[in-house]
Simulated assay, not measured.
Amino acid sequence: MKVKFLGNKPETKKEKKKKSFLREWGDAILFAVIAASLIRWATFEAYTIPTPSMEKSLLVGDFLFVSKLHYGPRTPMTPLQIPLTHQVIWGTDIPAYSDAIQLKSYRLPGFSEVKRFDVVVFNHPVEDQYPADLRTNFIKRCIGLPGDSLQVKDMQVYIDGKPIDNPGKMQYKYAIVPKIQLKDKFFQDRHINLKDIYPFKGGYAVDATPELAAEIKQLPIIKDVMLLKELPGEADPRVFPQVPSKYVWNKDNYGPIYIPEEGATVAITPASLPFYEKVILDYEHNEGYTVKDGKLYKDGQEVHQYTFKQDYYFMMGDNRHNSEDSRFWGYVPKDHIVGKAVLIWMSVNPEGSGFGKIRWDRLFNIIE
């Protein structure tokens, strides 16, 4: 018996069109990029140590995980950026961002504030050619906190007039004067970087811990080992605030210097202005401020005091005589803080070869 359907023909389920191979891969890559970008922004990011400024605590060739969770991730200041890049497109000099849009940055809640002796990654504050969140990443140890008065006397750091503990693996510059010519193996066996050695008065200038320097001095082939420190009263025009005529400071004898704290008000005088000029003009996003003839003006009216809008920090490298740090360019603003270095997950010796390139004893070490 035939059955006739009255009215509309019943709907049939349409077969779903299968994605092409390229479309599937494209969707997978897009998802991976978005996921990696979110993880990198909000939780952990991988960094490498390119310079010896933190030796021997951190070595050239260490690969680190840096936690954004500790201090809280920052919302992007430069949203027009190619994902998973920093300043340029990989392997080129082509900018990986556009600064056509610049946003105010906010910091999401973290579970810790920056503490003294934390090893911190931050954007280099004085690198004006890039937006703040794309400036070169530096890694140093936080020595001075907001509101501190910091001074360095004979290489020892003082906070509010009291000496603080020194990092356990801190290095200085020493002159090694040998009785014979020393070969590369002498330095490699003692984990002294060959790239940082240079001739000095019939010997070699090297970075070393006080313990290693004392050990080398006892060797029969060594004539003398001398600590190369700068003396009080020797002005270094490179150190912040770069006014050697007023502040006769150097990297071993520095300060005292006040570290700005949010809400604190300071007097602005010709003597104090060099310390706060860049803070007021650049870091605090102010408008209408100018400096002329050693005086601060806002909208043409002279200003005699200033209240800070955010906290600042004083960072120093553990390799005290081979570190470009706050002694040379001043304070690190809170909105330049990237995160806390927490773990060494890989370490490669650039002077090693084969399996000897990997420093196995440093893998998965907690950073202190």
Rank of each mutant, 00 (worst) to 15 (best):
M155Y: 00
F111Q: 14
T209E: 05
W360P: 08
G294H: 12
R359C: 11
P274D: 04
A42D: 03
S57D: 10
T51M: 10
P237E: 11
E15Q: 10
L219N: 09
I257Y: 00
M54R: 02
I89K: 05
D325Y: 06
Y312M: 03
H285K: 10
Q129H: 08
R141E: 02
A42T: 11
K195P: 09
K68C: 09
D196T: 14
V248H: 14
I139C: 02
A264K: 14
Y97P: 00
W41E: 14
K179V: 02
K246L: 11
L30I: 15
Y283M: 10
P76Q: 06
T43A: 14
S37K: 05
Y254V: 01
N193F: 11
V120P: 02
P220C: 05
P232W: 08
H321F: 04
N319Y: 03
I197W: 05
V120A: 04
P241D: 04
L30T: 15
M226N: 13
Q242T: 12
A205Y: 05
P256M: 01
K19V: 13
R238A: 11
T51A: 14
L273H: 07
A271R: 06
S37Y: 14
L22F: 15
I366G: 09
P95K: 02
K229L: 04
K140R: 01
D207L: 08
E302H: 04
L59A: 15
M315L: 06
G233C: 12
G203F: 11
R190P: 03
V3H: 15
T269C: 09
N193P: 05
P210H: 04
L145S: 00
G110W: 03
I180H: 12
S353F: 05
K251S: 08
A264D: 11
H321P: 03
R40H: 15
Y313P: 09
D128S: 15
L38D: 09
F138A: 08
A271E: 14
E368P: 01
P244Y: 10
P256Q: 02
K19Y: 14
S53K: 05
P131R: 06
N8H: 13
L296W: 07
T269F: 04
L231K: 12
Y289V: 04
I268M: 07
G330I: 01
K179I: 02
K298L: 07
P109Q: 12
K17Q: 07
Y258F: 11
N253W: 06
L80P: 04
V279A: 06
V152M: 00
W360E: 13
I82V: 15
E324N: 12
K14D: 09
Y312D: 02
V3L: 14
N286T: 15
N250Q: 08
D165P: 00
K246G: 01
N8D: 13
D160V: 00
M170L: 08
G356N: 11
V3M: 14
G161M: 00
N8R: 15
K14W: 02
I221L: 15
L69W: 12
P210W: 02
D118A: 08
Q81N: 08
V206Y: 09
Q305Y: 03
K195V: 12
T92F: 09
Y158A: 00
P83Q: 08
Y297L: 10
L363K: 14
V3G: 09
G356W: 02
Y258A: 02
G352H: 07
K334V: 07
G294L: 04
R359N: 13
D361I: 06
